[in-house]
């Protein structure tokens, strides 16, 4: 079986989500580098042919072409590592994982926008994006405060799932858009647990320690 191809830009946080999950699943990827900044290659004709939305990541796995981060994460787990503990089998835990994956896809998009606006010249109202991203991190903090009281160290339960790996980059990279970690003690402890998961890898902007 040939390895799935990830059209990748190292500084893009959604591409990192895919690399991180693949690494934790033990799934090898073939990386195809795309010059997102300053080259804007993701907006060119060749990449538009793969993803008309002009966004990364894009995953090509045989005949299957996927362009949404959370769908890519689910596919890598289900097709290439179906027995992984990161994909809970119990229905309630799986549903909680899906709830947070949807949060990641819908709500937390502002954090990626805040970061590309601050760092990569993407358009947007930097102040408003920062405020929205901080509000999302507060929701995550409030949830992990309660998870801590329940004796659960991760978002969907006592063990890590794909949701934790999908949520991690937004917190780990928040200093890129000037939201420090001071106000998020429960997320700091959670991030430390994520860093210890087997296969964990970093990206530029996320220090490699612990």
């Amino acid at each position: 079986m040939t390895a799935p191809i990830l059209y990748n830009y190292d500084l893009d946080e959604n591409c990192y989500r895919v690399r991180l999950v693949a690494s934790c699943l033990g799934v090898a990827l073939t990386l195809h580098g795309i010059d997102m900044y300053p080259g804007r290659e993701h907006l060119g004709a060749a990449m538009r042919a793969l993803n008309p939305a002009g966004r990364l990541p894009v995953l090509q796995d045989g005949d299957l072409l996927l362009t949404q981060t959370e769908a890519i994460l689910m596919h890598l787990a289900e097709a290439h590592a179906p027995t992984t503990p990161l994909l809970p089998q119990d229905a309630a835990t799986r549903a909680r994982m899906m709830d947070w994956l949807a949060f990641c896809a819908r709500d937390l998009g502002v954090a990626a926008q805040a970061r590309t606006c601050a760092m990569l010249d993407a358009p947007g109202d930097a102040q408003a994006l920062r405020a929205s991203a901080r509000a999302c991190l507060r929701l995550m903090e409030d949830h992990m405060v309660k998870q801590g009281i329940r004796g659960c160290g991760f978002f969907a339960g006592p063990a890590a799932t794909l949701a934790d790996l999908a949520l991690f980059p937004a917190f780990a990279l928040s200093r890129d858009f000037n939201v420090d970690h001071d106000e998020f003690p429960a997320l700091r402890l959670w991030a430390r647990r994520v860093r210890r998961l087997p296969g964990f890898i970093t990206m530029p902007g996320i220090p490699d320690y612990h």
């Binding site: 970690h181 003690p185 700091r188 430390r192």
Partner: peptide
């Protein structure tokens, strides 16, 4: 900070 939130080997601002 709450003592329990600063684990051994960690730092915070």
């Amino acid at each position: 900070a709450l003592s329990s939130m600063i684990e051994v080997g960690t730092s915070a601002g």
